Amino acid sequence: MNESNQQLKFFSDISDQEIFFVKKGSLDFLFDANKFVLPAIGKDDLQRVFRLANLGNYVLIRGAGKVMIELPINLETHILLLPNEYIQRDFSDKSQSDVHSIADAGQLAELVFSLYTQKKPPTRQVMVYWLEQKQFVEKVENLNFKKDSKE
């Protein structure tokens, strides 16, 4: 495992954040495939988000009670971050403003970008991409379950 992956693995382990690679519209595990469940996101939505991120944006993906953040590393490779439950609650808290949530997403994306690339993150806008709940549930692709789970 190279140093960039080691940095992200350490961050993932200590903060309980799930981190995945996105390459040309397909989602893949960055670390142990038995530890995490791939997030349920349709291929069409995944490709749209990939294109939005390639325009130089961090993309905050909201839908079905979960929040994900996609950040481009280069034109071919992105990182998809599924924040831990504590952060998920902050994003879903009705008392917290959307502006505050978007700023938090940008800071989290910048931290992950810096850990992976060992460079200062570029200035990027945070776009919000809403998944429709119906699509989110019906277009499940690449869904795996945690090892030893009852699911």
Score class of each variant (00 low, 15 high):
76 E>W: 01
43 K>F: 03
22 V>A: 06
92 S>Q: 15
130 W>Y: 14
138 E>N: 15
40 A>E: 13
16 D>C: 07
107 Q>S: 12
127 M>V: 07
95 S>W: 08
52 L>Q: 13
141 E>W: 05
107 Q>H: 10
116 Y>T: 05
86 Y>W: 05
45 D>E: 08
54 N>M: 04
20 F>N: 07
125 Q>C: 04
30 L>C: 00
5 N>V: 12
79 I>L: 15
72 P>K: 13
85 E>H: 08
104 D>Y: 09
28 D>V: 01
118 Q>H: 09
51 R>K: 08
29 F>Q: 05
8 L>W: 11
73 I>G: 04
92 S>T: 15
59 V>L: 04
103 A>G: 07
19 I>M: 11
16 D>Y: 09
80 L>T: 01
87 I>R: 13
81 L>T: 02
103 A>I: 15
135 Q>R: 14
1 M>F: 05
16 D>P: 00
17 Q>D: 07
10 F>I: 04
106 G>N: 05
46 L>Q: 06
40 A>P: 00
49 V>F: 01
83 P>C: 13
95 S>I: 07
99 V>H: 12
28 D>A: 14
81 L>F: 06
108 L>C: 05
83 P>L: 05
40 A>W: 02
23 K>H: 11
64 A>V: 08
133 Q>R: 08
130 W>D: 14
106 G>Y: 02
89 R>S: 14
33 A>N: 10
120 K>R: 10
6 Q>M: 08
34 N>Y: 02
20 F>L: 05
79 I>P: 10
122 P>R: 00
38 L>E: 03
145 F>A: 02
30 L>V: 02
56 G>R: 03
122 P>Q: 00
46 L>G: 10
57 N>I: 03
120 K>C: 03
114 S>I: 02
115 L>A: 09
123 T>G: 03
57 N>C: 12
99 V>A: 14
151 E>H: 04
83 P>M: 12
85 E>G: 09
22 V>C: 04
105 A>K: 02
79 I>V: 15
70 E>K: 07
39 P>L: 04
50 F>A: 10
104 D>Q: 15
20 F>P: 05
58 Y>I: 09
39 P>Y: 08
102 I>N: 08
95 S>Y: 12
72 P>A: 15
137 V>S: 07
90 D>K: 15
143 L>R: 13
73 I>Q: 02
53 A>Y: 01
25 G>V: 01
135 Q>K: 13
146 K>I: 11
77 T>Q: 10
107 Q>A: 14
88 Q>A: 06
43 K>A: 09
32 D>P: 01
80 L>V: 08
74 N>F: 01
111 L>Q: 12
35 K>P: 00
122 P>A: 00
151 E>M: 06
35 K>R: 12
89 R>T: 12
105 A>L: 01
5 N>P: 00
23 K>C: 06
121 P>Q: 10
4 S>Y: 09
17 Q>K: 07
41 I>M: 14
68 M>A: 10
149 S>M: 03
64 A>H: 11
17 Q>H: 14
96 Q>M: 14
29 F>P: 04
121 P>M: 12
80 L>K: 04
79 I>G: 06
128 V>S: 05
56 G>N: 03
12 S>D: 00
30 L>F: 03
126 V>E: 07
37 V>K: 13
40 A>N: 11
110 E>Q: 09
140 V>C: 08
138 E>Y: 04
36 F>N: 14
